[in-house]
Design a protein around this nucleic acid. Structure first.
Lengths: 194, 194
DNA sequence: AAATAATATTAATCTAGATTAACATCTATT
DNA sequence: AATAGATGTTAATCTAGATTAATATTATTT
């Protein structure tokens, strides 16, 4: 069981004793998903917060017209789940699907509640994790609101340099909130611009 | 000093002892702002998390073209600040301006850090506050992405029934991410529709 | 290596919402 | 009550990005 990436990550925010680490590790679940499998499905209640050991996921939702909108991509050392659904234990707004074979560490809602009482320091850790998620979410709102598609695409390339190589163009278009055809247009404009 | 709304609010999430309440109250600042004044300005580091006792604020930012985008409105018993800037202590993306005379309770960054060490239970409280803010922020992304302006406006009216009466139309247009002229068009369409 | 499926590009046409500008109200100040 | 400033509406024109559809490329299977 490869727990090192998770423990290293936690160690950035809080210091756990050896006993605390033992308790923590007794309450996590290792799980492997294949490419294409769903970790969370829209409408289900998201049962776990998931830390990625290896692989890549996309978080998206489908509106009533059946159009997909990609909200984020996640890779190694990131969290992936419908955090809103997990927090409130209400039906998920989002799907989380594996774009590659993906290895996760899962915290179920019940296990995490238990961990909070046994290791109160974890309140601090998850406060900080959610703070970061919140900041990212706010920045996303600003981008969607104020940037033209071309600018938004350039920022995407800076923010996620690896992801453009790892996922198909139509998913990037979906992330940017534009059609794949328009993304294609933007890219050819950028080539001719220089 | 009217501390009751804050203590009632905290009591929903955690139970504080009498001593803990005393410590807490010794570390807060009451502050009154006049209509039009800024609690936070874009570019400054947001120094406090602010709980509204009375009044109303808007959170907005101005892009390089000088266009204002309203991200949220806040009223009594809500929090208002650039939480992203506060959390990371980096320059604010947003302005927070009072739309009415507004009475606040302020937690400075330093006081809050001190409170976390003296009353570790507050980690839990603020974790839950930020969880809620995060959920709201995620729902906002979905709305901006997938709804046509008319639908978005109807949801706005349901979500904030009081606010439409309390703030000018052009701010609502800014919140919806459309021009005031287009909002006007939508409203007259809705009247003729029925 | 051919065939099929999946993904990407190009181009023509269409539409939601922006922009501009003229006019109408409403509110506050002298 | 008259004027100025802020806010709201209507209408004409314009544009970013959507839609559709045809074609090209790339990856996967037989």
């Amino acid at each position: 069981m490869n727990n090192k990436p998770l423990l290293d990550y936690i160690n950035i925010y809080i210091n756990l004793t050896v006993e605390e680490k033992t308790i923590l590790l007794s309450k996590i679940i290792h799980r492997n998903y294949l490419k294409g499998q769903y970790i969370v499905q829209q409408g289900d209640i998201c049962k776990s917060a998931n830390f990625i050991i290896s692989g890549c996921t996309k978080t998206f939702y489908t509106n009533k017209e059946g159009q997909e909108h990609t909200v984020m991509f996640s890779v190694e050392d990131w969290w992936t789940s419908d955090l809103g659904s997990f927090i409130t234990q209400t039906p998920a707004d989002f799907n989380v699907q594996c774009l590659e074979n993906t290895e996760l560490i899962q915290f179920t809602f019940e296990n995490l509640e238990e961990l909070y009482t046994k290791i109160p320091k974890l309140e601090r850790f998850f406060r900080k994790i959610i703070e970061r998620a919140f900041v990212a979410s706010q920045k996303r709102i600003i981008k969607n609101f104020s940037l033209a598609a071309k600018e938004h695409y350039l920022i995407f390339k800076e923010t996620y340099p690896e992801i453009e190589q790892r996922v198909p163009q139509y998913m990037i278009a979906s992330y940017l909130g534009i059609t794949k055809e328009f993304l294609s247009k933007i890219k050819s404009q950028l080539i001719h611009d220089q």
